[in-house]
Structure formats: structure tokens, C-alpha cells
């Protein structure tokens, strides 16, 4: 008797749930944003949450008591941009993160087709419509480009010290600066955050190539203690590339 009762309850629950959801599921039209929503609900929702607040059920376990938690798309605080600090990212910025992932924390979704990744990009922007109302302006890369050389890297060290990068990243670039060691660094959610180990470019969240590093230096990582150095490096194109080359030289494999 116990078994029959148990199974009857289960069958009723299954049928009721099915009727309740099939109608809303069938009503979805197939615009880009709605297709993006469908993909989001399968691929992204467990970390970024149903409403894009970075509070999905898996979010807490990834970084329970320290940063980084998954991005909250509703506050418009995007870390990885090619635009000035405080501005919205470009569509290409969002697409790039979807494609490359974030080492350590977010896998690459290059398994989605290019079209699907653009659809997800379109849907993500819906979480903070005010931010994306105006077209973002892309920060220009310093010109002329200075290719990597030991001489350039040596010049870059003085820029590194001038910008006080060592306060967080340490004199040797291993992320053991005084501020980091004092546990004084926190992200916009108040979670403790560590400085990136610059000797391990595979772990750079915004990418480890020279182009990626200059973009990070100029735009900063909003929501983290890493500021934008665009103003300090204004008119100092060569110094900007020297700094990048110094960071590249810290990697034992470079």
C-alpha cells in the first residue's frame, strides 16, 4: 500500500508540473534575445543565476569566502572591457569572455556556435539596459607598438615602480605586495581578493598576451582594486608598452 500511495503522489506531481510548464515553453518566440535566453538558462544560469545577479546555486561553491564570485550583470560592473573604467563593455568584449572563459573560474564556451555566443551576448545586455543605452567608446591602444625586447622590459621595470604596481603585485611580480599580504584588498562585494601572480600568465583572467595586458592596464578591472592607468599613461605610449614587456618578461616561459 505504501508503494502505491508513493507512486500515485509522484505521478500527480509529474503531470501537474508538465502541464504548468509546457504552455510557457511553447510561447517563446525565436528572436535573438529569446534564443540567447534559452542558451543562458542551460549554460549560464547555475553560476550567474536566473536573474543575472551572479547568485546561481553553484556560485557560492566556486568562491565561497573570497573573490571572485560570478559577475552580477544587473549592476553593470563589468571587469573585462576594452572601454574606459565605468563604461559598458563592447559586444566583442562579452563575446571574447564567452569564447575564452576565465582561467580558473569560468570555462570556455567555445562549444557554442558563434551565432549562439552572439545571441547570449544580446541576452546578457538585457540585465542592465541603462548601461548599454549608449554605444561604448573603445580605448585606443598606444601607438607606436613596441615589440618585446629585454631592453624594453628593463625600461618597463621603472614604469612598474613609478605606477606602484609593486604595492599589490610585489617587487618580483608574484602577487605578494605589502597590501596583498595585509589582506587589505577586497572586491566590490567586500570579498577578499588576491593580486594576480604576474609570473604565471596562464592565470591572467583578462588574458595573458601583450594585447590583453595593455587592455587591462589601460581600462582596469572594474569591481576590483585594479585601477585604470589610462590617465597616468596618457601621451606615454612607449612607456605603456615597456610596462607590458616588463610584465611579459616576468614569466619564466617567455
Amino acid at each position: 500500500m505504501r508503494v502505491q500511495t508513493l507512486m500515485s503522489y509522484w505521478l500527480c506531481l509529474s503531470i501537474a508540473g508538465l502541464i504548468g510548464h509546457v504552455s510557457s515553453w511553447a510561447a517563446l518566440a525565436d528572436s535573438d534575445i529569446q534564443l540567447g535566453q534559452k542558451i543562458y538558462e542551460r549554460s549560464c544560469v547555475t553560476c550567474h543565476g536566473e536573474f543575472g545577479k551572479g547568485d546561481g546555486p553553484a556560485a557560492f561553491y566556486n568562491s565561497a569566502y573570497s573573490a571572485p564570485r560570478p559577475r552580477d550583470f544587473t549592476v553593470g560592473n563589468y571587469k573585462f572591457r576594452s572601454t574606459p573604467s565605468g563604461e559598458a563593455p563592447t559586444d566583442q568584449d562579452i563575446f571574447r569572455v564567452l569564447t575564452n572563459g576565465i582561467p580558473g573560474y569560468m570555462p570556455s564556451f567555445s562549444g557554442l556556435s558563434e551565432e549562439q555566443r552572439w545571441q547570449v551576448t544580446a541576452y546578457l545586455k538585457q540585465f542592465s539596459p541603462d548601461l548599454f543605452r549608449e554605444s561604448p567608446t573603445v580605448v585606443d591602444l598606444p601607438d607606436p607598438f613596441i615589440p618585446f625586447s629585454l631592453k624594453s622590459a628593463q625600461q618597463g621595470r621603472s614604469v612598474y615602480l613609478e605606477m606602484e604596481c609593486q604595492a599589490c603585485h610585489g617587487l618580483d611580480g608574484r602577487g605578494t605586495g605589502a597590501t596583498t599580504l595585509m589582506n587589505d584588498l577586497a572586491d566590490s562585494r567586500g570579498l577578499q581578493i588576491s593580486s594576480t601572480d604576474l609570473t604565471f600568465p596562464q592565470s591572467f583572467k583578462n588574458g595573458g598576451t601583450g594585447q590583453d595586458i595593455i587592455r587591462t592596464v589601460l581600462t582596469g578591472l572594474d569591481g576590483t582594486p585594479m585601477p585604470s592607468y589610462e590617465a597616468q599613461l596618457q601621451g606615454r605610449s612607449e612607456d605603456a608598452w615597456h610596462l607590458v614587456n616588463y610584465v611579459l618578461s616576468l614569466s619564466p616561459t617567455h
Partner: peptide, 27 residues
């Protein structure tokens, strides 16, 4: 960052998929 098979393959840490290894989280 790179740990057992999948973590190495996708360059993420274990906790992306596990509440704590070995139990899985929603992702």
C-alpha cells in the same frame, strides 16, 4: 588552477563543478 582531468582540460579549478570534491554542484 589545473587539477584532475576536466579541470586541466578546461583550465578551471575543481570547485567550478564540485561543492567540494567529489560531490557535484549544479554546474
Amino acid at each position: 588552477y589545473a587539477l584532475p582531468a576536466f579541470a586541466r582540460k578546461y583550465q578551471v579549478n575543481c570547485n567550478v563543478c564540485h561543492t567540494r570534491q567529489p560531490r557535484l554542484n549544479s554546474f
